[in-house]
Design a protein around this nucleic acid. Sequence first.
DNA 1: TTGAAAGCGCTAACAC
DNA 2: GTGTTAGCGCTTTCAA
Lengths: 333, 333
Amino acid sequence: MNIYDIAKLAGVSIATVSRVVNDSPKVSEKTKEKVRAVMAANDYIPNVFARGMSLNSMKTVGIICPSVSDHYMASAVSYLEKNLRNYGYDCILYCSGYEQEDKEISVQMILQKRIDALLLVGSCYAGDKEYGEDITYIKKASEEIPVFIMNGFISGENIYCMLTDDYQSVYDAASAMLASGRRQILFLSDSYSYSAMHKLQGYEDALKAAGIPVLGERKVYIKNEIHLVRDILLARRDLEFDGVIATDDGLAVGAVKYARAKRLSVPKDISIIGYNNSELSIGCEPELTSIDGRGDLLCKMTIDSLMEVLKGEDVEHRKYVRCRLEKRCTTDF
Amino acid sequence: MNIYDIAKLAGVSIATVSRVVNDSPKVSEKTKEKVRAVMAANDYIPNVFARGMSLNSMKTVGIICPSVSDHYMASAVSYLEKNLRNYGYDCILYCSGYEQEDKEISVQMILQKRIDALLLVGSCYAGDKEYGEDITYIKKASEEIPVFIMNGFISGENIYCMLTDDYQSVYDAASAMLASGRRQILFLSDSYSYSAMHKLQGYEDALKAAGIPVLGERKVYIKNEIHLVRDILLARRDLEFDGVIATDDGLAVGAVKYARAKRLSVPKDISIIGYNNSELSIGCEPELTSIDGRGDLLCKMTIDSLMEVLKGEDVEHRKYVRCRLEKRCTTDF
DNA sequence: TTGAAAGCGCTAACAC
DNA sequence: GTGTTAGCGCTTTCAA
């Protein structure tokens, strides 16, 4: 069943059928009804390829994230997919991993699909030149289609960045922890991403503002595995700390496990703050105070901007979402 | 840059360029080299639409899952996407939600994309007629393209089901719990899916085999939210139990929280087993014994079958993966 | 081994 | 408001 068959059956031209399919206003209601009836009766499905060929667009958005098995990103992808579809856009998904080369290949491949826009989920795509990562592949992509980065920043004509205010939220959290009397706060991170660097900066500035020295040994980088974090902390007998700020809940729960192993009381002996407000922060014991990066809002903002850009409207190249501290039992403020 | 430009620059016909792109054997190496050089020099990218139109395939697999924010499914989608791409297939993702109508719409819409195969992730798509759900929309899809169901079963010519041995794993877990002396085991579930019904059956049969009566009140259905589960269990003062088998780790952690609130010792006073072996089972305290549904194996099996079917080979319509009990601290066997 | 040319099914510019 | 027709960029016969 193609457009010619429908046209013949309905006694109109293919142009009219096409117009009906696209709900053009310059077809009479009567004709529309007639054609629609024929289409329905024959289970007619317009050929997306032919359509894409004429329009040179498939109403598809490409989404790349390092891994959708990370909960934060999974939620984001889920939300994005659902809402984009509401706007009539499909999603094609690539999980690129974290390696530079793989990220480049992913972008290159997804561009071949003639997507209408590219969505980069995760701050690992914002590896700024300062941090040694090459971002020309993203710049290049932006020459063809608009690029949206969630939680990362790259400046560019056709690049739109949706940001979480990581700096401020960690600054505030660390300040509150300091105000509650902690003096030796550990910064626990598993990444050098744009986002992680801003969190670090917030941590350092809060310490400085309180007149506390920033020690290199208190900045611990480690793989995000609960038991691994616990064991590493246990092994580092030189390390003294009465507070932990982690860039992810998994890391923070590792610290909780460490406290338990050392029979430290939480939050009395040690205060702990995680990040992302995930299920893990409710599952652990005591339950974890966590910074909520408001992924939902970030997604919403992204989709709104995306639609505006696709409509040809002018959109800010950088937008922010404020985080929120979800207070639970691992802090005493 | 299209095929005509390349042809002109290379001094050959478009047919030859096309053959080179598709690595046809009937082009001389010499010509191939020449054409390839021109393509490379001009960053030539074949137009996927035109290509899809001729081939009537876009080398794309449609994946539908209820929600990719569920960790189990997210891992699956991640794995599937990565491996399908290795085989040269793209993925288009739909998150359908759990409602019958939404699932039907998702399938209908994704079929319009001319996908080469449909992958249904999650046992909620197997709602058997016995359980009241209509599956004709899946049967209908299978008339057009091969359909693969992960963790669900529907019989049909063009339907391939990859199954986890949920029945046996719960049967074994419940039997072990009974052997360790428990007599009042609670079955905690959040769904009536194909998979959940099989888990239930395993639970019931294990009890029966041990001569223990199956009580309706010991089968608790509840939304998968940790605090909610805890509170409901606390509220049900009539309910007595010394063991819990849950169809998901989230539910099981709710039971752990319940035990803590009641100052019950785990596993001494109450033994708990979760499902899916997620991060949550390591994050909670004490750490949760959990049944690992081997999602990775299931995915691998699915992709292997998919490729064989697409190649036109004969493939079994039902395949099983064995689960594994990951023993941690909430059980004493 | 290569080229010419006929589609594939649709959109959109143009004509009526 | 409707029809005619020229592409869109590719694959694939068919001839040479």
